[in-house]
Amino acid sequence: MSARLVLLGPPGAGKGTQAARLAERLGVPAISTGDIFRANIRGGTELGRTAQAYTARGELVPDEVTNAMVRDRLAQDDAAEGFLLDGYPRNVAQVAELDAVLAADGRGVDLAVELTADPEVVVARLLHRATVEGREDDTEDVVRHRLTVYTEQTAPVAALYAERGLLAQVDGIGDVDEVTQRLLDAIGQPAR
């Protein structure tokens, strides 16, 4: 099945887990901006060196660098028949860039799926993960700030896809298999 999907959701909603499961089920690559950054940095590419300069200073990588990395990744053969984007687009300007990249090939996004989650559940989940993984910097204040930033930046993205009739919201809380099935139902994939 050809699918060009955007997966939205706050930190701790299970996007990474669900992106991998959906991508496998749909036979398309799960494309995470974090993975793209790490691959470019490891590979010593020009974009990777530029991104690393920002991250080393604790700054966000600018849109033009992120956009260029995503554009390069979407041009690879495995994404020709579809993809699942995780972590991109994060703002309305990135939506416009993604639209332009896809329109150049006569394509567009099929659907944006937003994993929703009760903020208190997400905070508890992220604090537990921080303890298990030894992330001492992930305090409750930091986690709540990340959720606020997500809401401020991504709410307009979800609203834009909703205006286009391309947004499905799925409850991201619950058993992993149940959430996967909710996502498959939302994108019109039958149960196995």
Rank of each mutant, 00 (worst) to 15 (best):
N91K: 14
E114C: 15
T139N: 13
T139R: 12
R146M: 05
D118M: 15
D86N: 03
R129G: 01
V123H: 10
E114I: 12
R125N: 08
E140P: 01
L111F: 09
G106T: 07
E152Y: 06
E152R: 14
E97I: 07
V109R: 10
T139F: 01
F83H: 00
A100W: 00
A112E: 04
D105C: 05
P119R: 02
R135T: 03
G87A: 00
D141W: 12
R107Y: 01
V149N: 11
L127N: 10
E133I: 10
V132W: 02
D141C: 10
H128G: 11
A124V: 08
V123S: 13
R90S: 04
D99C: 00
V113T: 00
R125A: 11
A104Y: 05
V92F: 10
E114R: 12
Y150S: 08
P156T: 13
E140N: 13
L84H: 00
V142P: 07
A112Q: 12
E97R: 03
V132I: 08
L98F: 01
L98G: 05
A124L: 13
L111P: 07
H128Y: 06
V149H: 13
E114G: 08
G108A: 14
R146N: 09
L98Y: 06
E120S: 12
A130H: 06
V157E: 01
A117C: 12
P89G: 01
T148H: 14
A100L: 05
E97W: 05
A130Q: 05
V122C: 03
G106I: 04
D137A: 12
L84P: 00
E97F: 11
A103E: 09
P89Y: 02
H128A: 04
G108E: 15
A117V: 15
G82M: 03
L115Q: 07
R135G: 07
E114V: 14
V122L: 15
G108H: 09
T116W: 09
V121F: 15
A155T: 15
R144C: 08
N91A: 13
D99A: 06
R146E: 06
D137Q: 13
V123A: 09
E120R: 09
E133L: 05
D105A: 15
Q94C: 02
T151E: 09
V143Y: 00
V121C: 07
L115F: 03
Y88W: 04
P119F: 02
A158N: 04
T154E: 14
E140G: 14
P89C: 12
A112K: 07
R90C: 09
D105V: 13
D141P: 14
A103L: 08
T151M: 13
R129L: 11
V113M: 00
V143E: 07
F83E: 00
L127C: 03
D137K: 13
P119V: 15
E114W: 12
H145E: 12
D137R: 11
Q94E: 11
V122M: 05
A103H: 02
L84S: 04
A96V: 05
R135D: 05
A158I: 05
L126P: 10
V122F: 15
L85I: 03
V123T: 08
H145I: 06
N91D: 14
